[in-house]
């Protein structure tokens, strides 16, 4: 017993740390990662490795050589960015493309703003969108996967892409659906042919439930996205089922579940308050549906999240915690 330590209260601290929270997100992503590797084969594992490795290396290099601060890779946030980026591209993407995406995600979208906590846009989505506009061919060449257990690769369109093309060609939604043979039950566990992470809705939802149980995130953002997507498509589908797809189709296809569960709920780029989160989620859901129905891209989750990311500071200003004893 030497010198007495003196600090202001409180004298105890929660066991949670930035690292433990991020680790929980990584754990929550594991089912989706495992499923994607099983479906898409070793190539997908290579993509994940390159993506995570590039994110970590870049963050380390930037903190070490440019910011001259202690490295922040220990908080594991770069790992999440890497995993999400890899899950957000087709498994056929060349390794150097995803490396460039990682450089953009960490180098431009995250570290230029000052690193973790300072970025306005979700790094993984920013990286994905950067790749989407820079390398559209690689990013929209969807192939039916070979998988670990062998299946010939067939180039095909995603359900959303097929609908968009079909509508442009003048067919009705019902015809396209019938032609594509889309089965909602199958989509729930094996939605093949899109980005790697979109493959299995069940795996993603399992991760989401894990995050909720561990109280890492709150459900409001995700639920309001789902509700808005369902409601918006219900209205349009109700008006014209030949022109607009139905709610269930919209919930199950594309990157909606991945985006709503793991990317829109990113702490740094989402509003702090519950009501702010609802507004954020409604915005994402609505924009997603507008892009899907009326935009030139078949899928709009990434763009919707990026756009709403930009509104977060405003939302935070408008929605405050309810204060004790004040009107």
């Amino acid at each position: 017993m030497g010198k007495l330590l003196v600090t202001p209260s409180p004298h105890i601290h929660t066991k949670d740390s930035t690292r433990s929270l991020m680790l929980d997100v990584v754990i929550a992503l594991l089912p989706a990662v495992i499923v994607s590797v099983v479906f898409y084969g070793w190539r997908e594992l290579m993509l994940l490795g390159v993506s995570v490795g590039a994110c970590l290396l870049l963050e380390w290099a930037v903190t070490r050589f440019m910011l001259k601060k202690p490295s922040t890779i220990g908080d594991l946030s770069a790992v999440i960015t890497g995993i999400l980026l890899a899950l957000n591209v087709p498994y056929t993407t060349p390794w150097w493309v995803i490396a460039i995406g990682a450089v953009f995600a960490i180098g431009v979208a995250k570290m230029t703003f000052g690193g973790i906590g300072q970025n306005i846009f979700n790094p993984a989505i920013a990286g994905r969108v950067f790749l989407l506009v820079s390398f559209p061919t690689y990013m929209t060449t969807w192939s039916q996967p070979q998988g670990l257990f062998g299946l010939d690769a067939i180039t095909g369109a995603t359900p959303l892409g097929a609908v968009k093309e079909g509508l442009l060609a003048g067919s009705s939604v019902q015809d396209i659906m019938a032609a594509g043979g889309y089965d909602y039950a199958t989509m729930l566990y094996a939605n093949l042919g899109g980005s790697a992470g979109e493959a299995c809705a069940i795996a993603l939802l399992a991760g989401f439930v894990y995050l909720l149980c561990r109280r890492v995130i709150k459900p409001w953002i995700t639920l309001s996205i789902f509700a808005t997507v369902a409601l918006t498509s219900l209205i349009f589908w109700g008006i014209n089922p030949a022109r607009f797809t139905d709610p269930l189709f919209n919930l199950l296809t594309g990157g909606l579940i991945l985006g709503a569960c793991f990317m829109a709920t990113d702490y740094v780029t989402s509003p702090m308050s519950a009501w702010g989160g609802v507004v954020f989620g409604v915005g994402i859901g609505f924009l997603t549906m507008m892009i899907r129905y009326f935009g030139s891209y078949p899928e709009g989750v990434s763009f919707a999240i990026l756009i709403m990311n930009a509104f977060v500071p405003l939302i935070n200003m408008a929605f405050h915690q309810k204060k004790f004893g004040r009107k």
Partner: peptide
């Protein structure tokens, strides 16, 4: 202390 991650806890 590390950077605020805006978790809102």
């Amino acid at each position: 202390a590390s950077a605020c991650i805006r978790c809102g806890r």
